[in-house]
Nucleic acid binder design. Structure first.
Lengths: 234, 234
DNA sequence: TGCCGTATTACGGTATCCCATAATACCGTT
DNA sequence: AACGGTATTATGGGATACCGTAATACGGCA
């Protein structure tokens, strides 16, 4: 089993990602950071210039993002930034509630002291971002917290799904975050989750996690209703 | 708000799918129907000949399927049929259990008499496929049953996720189906789900649905263990 | 038999080319 | 000035041809 040559330190770096992969990442990042408006057309030749790659690469990247749901191809028009589907947003939150609750339950079963400490740190980072960062920073810190939670839980597949779901409601997440008082409330909700995990109380962790998402869902739905009221007139 | 011209019936048909879309479907179908072996290399130019389209189209289709998880791009080699990840299979079943249980619960709340009748029909189709069809037929009938369930439940997003998950464990589904006695057991499990829905008993429907997936999961995991035992020798 | 060098294969990527069509600008007529 | 039709442009869908490079197959030589 053991090789005479250790794997560590001597390996040739094969990780040079392809241009296409890096293009996908760049575009995904740009979309998730609102560098394009929702519904904005993504003109291939323009992207070629701005990204410095050929049209082939851009097109393949767009196909990938289309499958992820971040880009939609409008018939007879071409690729555009996917417009958020408000009718599906509530469903997304409901699914997240299920998955995150299960993750919290499993994390409570698996976590050791070091894991709990890491969760506490990650939550502190969220609070710090709330205090002095942009909503993007909060989003990033929150993502890292949940990545940690799902990792501790050993739920890699669920985490992939959650990331895909979050991408679809990214704009809503940013909106709910910049809501007044959201910082304190969210902090308290997170603390309840962490404390339950620290107590190894899976049931309570699942419940706290579920309720946290339900809260955010209600917030998001009410904001959506406000927006649609605005549109149809006062 | 009302247009002088009704939307219905007069619309111009814009649904002519692009070559790329049809190529994606063809390839996806071929993979899910085991026309390629797992891990088999998908040589672009060969596919061009066999599909009768240009490399541009084939490559974009492969990128799309890569994002779906059906195709993996091997470094320094190129595209290949994704090899099933046995370590993730259990997770996939667990997530399905959650989502399908929720769908069953919601379906129990929403279903009217006609819906229940449709579910009964769909289950009959599954049994018919078990009796006189191939495992592919069973897979197809089962998919239709669940599509119906999720539609009644109004859970379109969850259904999308489940379809994506099922694609990743397609081979396992086919294996568990061709297991002896699976027909009768599965039939009984489905009947319990349907009866609970007919009684409008959401809790029981969720429970029956959850347990059904748990059963299949145990079956799949034990089959995976058998296979890996075979590989390491008796 | 074992090894080495070469030929082949195939991908990632680029650059063009063509065609169909949607949107827009333009222009002449009434 | 308003309308109707036409020319232009922008853009995507799709097809080729080509290059450099890495993996692999092969064939000859020791």
């Amino acid at each position: 089993m053991d090789l005479p040559l250790e794997d560590t330190g001597l390996r040739v770096d094969r990780s040079t990602k392809t241009l296409r992969e890096r293009t996908v990442e760049r575009l995904r990042d740009a979309i998730l950071n609102f560098q394009f408006k929702a519904g904005e057309r993504l003109v291939e030749r323009t992207l070629c210039d701005r990204l410095g790659v050929s049209r082939t690469v851009v097109r393949e990247a767009l196909r990938h993002l289309e499958a992820e749901g971040l880009v939609e191809i409008l018939p007879q028009q071409g690729p555009a930034v996917a417009r958020p589907d408000t009718s599906q947003a509530a469903q997304v939150y409901e699914i997240r509630a299920l998955l995150e609750a299960e993750a919290a339950r499993a994390a409570a079963a698996n976590a050791d002291e070091a894991d709990v400490a890491r969760l506490v740190d990650a939550n502190r980072a969220i609070q710090a971002a709330f205090a002095e960062g942009t909503s993007r920073d909060v989003l990033k810190a929150t993502t890292e917290f949940y990545e940690l939670l799902f990792t501790i839980a050993g739920k890699s597949v669920a985490w992939q799904l959650v990331q895909g779901l979050n991408a679809r409601i990214n704009y809503l997440r940013a909106m709910t975050i910049s809501r007044p008082n959201r910082s304190a409330d969210a902090g308290a909700e997170m603390v309840r989750i962490i404390e339950a995990i620290a107590r190894r109380d899976g049931k309570a962790a699942a419940k706290a996690s579920f309720e946290h998402v339900e809260t955010v869902k209600r917030l998001a739905v009410s904001m959506l209703e406000d927006v649609s009221l605005l549109r149809t007139g006062p």
